[in-house]
């Protein structure tokens, strides 16, 4: 591990000022990703600014039934918060499906968003990787691509964003509160992460020195929601494909009609993938398998799978249809619970 200096931040403005002055500095939150990168040589900062003592650990009510979650709230604490369990079960489930109990006790809400891809080539400094070292090449293309993107990739990078939490937040229309050198601003989670394009080294639209201070959740949407994750092991593995979905069905007329739907996909792109094309098909349609598959097909029309991940196209299609069937009760007789996990 390359030597670095260590500072403990005592206030948010000071932390931002320190990083803004030092291009070679990084923030350290839960450390579950960064400490590993320090060991692997993927990150080689000269200064580590530890933000673990910053007062960003509260979960507060917003005026409209929404919630503001401090960036340093641990993933386990957010998942267990009674308000989040009741109002945003999809977020609780997404958090609980990530990593392990120990890791969730350390990982923070802000850090989870900013974790980096688990692409094996990105983490192996002996192989070329455009994300780790711009213009060095992409070892994944033509290599091992089981965990890689089928949507929105570029010839420079086919990596995926590994977070479960971020997928739920994208579907919930959550916002990140960011403190930067020029003050505070808000960014929708769905717009926080970038597609790789020509600059895969940039995961997000944040500037160096920007500090995520909180997440804001809008009031819970009507309807039912859930998070479904498909992975290679029953637990403690990153998603091959995941689906976060909320659906609201109007059952007042002679035939039920989908009033509103929000869907985000994980494990298939460089960012949590908000499935707007699928949502457009669902809105105003009758909830049935035909509709759900048409919605999935609309989203997957642009899919460009790689040699090692062709299976993700039918897997995503099936996952979207299955989750929607469960949420709308078209797979079984009437169900009543809001959260359809099984």
């Amino acid at each position: 591990m390359r030597p670095f200096d260590y500072e403990r931040a005592t206030d948010t403005a000071g932390a931002v000022a320190t990083l803004t002055e030092r291009p070679d500095a990084v923030f350290l939150a839960g450390g579950t990703n960064l400490v590993d990168h320090l060991k692997l040589g993927v990150a080689e900062p000269r200064l580590v600014v530890d933000i673990n003592r910053l007062d960003l650990t509260e979960i507060d009510e917003l005026d409209d039934e929404g919630l503001r979650i401090g960036a340093m709230v641990r993933n386990s604490d957010a998942a267990a918060d009674p308000r989040i369990r009741r109002r945003y079960p999809m977020l609780s489930r997404a958090l609980l499906s990530g990593a392990s109990g120990q890791l969730r006790n350390a990982a923070t809400m802000g850090g989870n968003l900013l974790q980096r891809t688990r692409c094996v080539y990105f983490q192996d400094t002996s192989t070329p990787c455009n994300k780790r070292e711009p213009d060095s090449g992409c070892s994944a293309i033509g290599g091992y691509t089981r965990y890689h993107a089928i949507l929105g990739a570029s010839p420079e990078c086919v990596a995926t964003h590994p977070s479960d939490m971020a997928v739920a937040l994208a579907a919930l229309d959550a916002t990140v509160v960011v403190l930067g050198a020029a003050g505070e601003r808000r960014i929708p989670v769905a717009e926080l992460h970038r597609l790789p394009g020509d600059h895969p080294e940039q995961d997000t639209v944040l500037d160096h020195g920007d500090l995520i201070t909180a997440l804001e959740l809008p009031p819970p949407r009507p309807g039912r929601s859930t998070y479904r994750k498909i992975r290679d092991r029953a637990s403690y593995a990153f998603a091959l494909v995941s689906v976060a979905a909320t659906v609201d069905v109007d059952t007042s007329g002679p035939t039920p009609v989908i009033r509103e739907a929000a869907i985000a996909l994980g494990g298939i792109a460089h960012k949590p993938w908000r499935a707007r094309a699928a949502e457009a098909v669902l809105r105003g349609a009758e909830p049935n398998e035909e509709t759900f598959l048409a919605a999935a097909d609309a989203e997957l029309e642009a899919a460009e799978p790689l040699e090692g991940n062709r299976f993700k196209v039918p897997m995503t299609r099936g996952a979207i249809a299955t989750v929607l069937s469960e949420l709308t009760g078209t797979d079984e007789p009437e169900t009543t619970t809001e959260d359809t996990h099984e």
Partner: peptide, 23 residues
């Protein structure tokens, strides 16, 4: 150690991803 921490989490009714009723 993991089991000790886990038993405490369960005693505080913290759900897991396989918990049917989150509340």
């Amino acid at each position: 150690c993991s089991a000790a921490g886990m038993l405490q989490e369960a005693a505080e009714d913290a759900p897991s991803v396989v918990t049917e009723d989150l509340e």
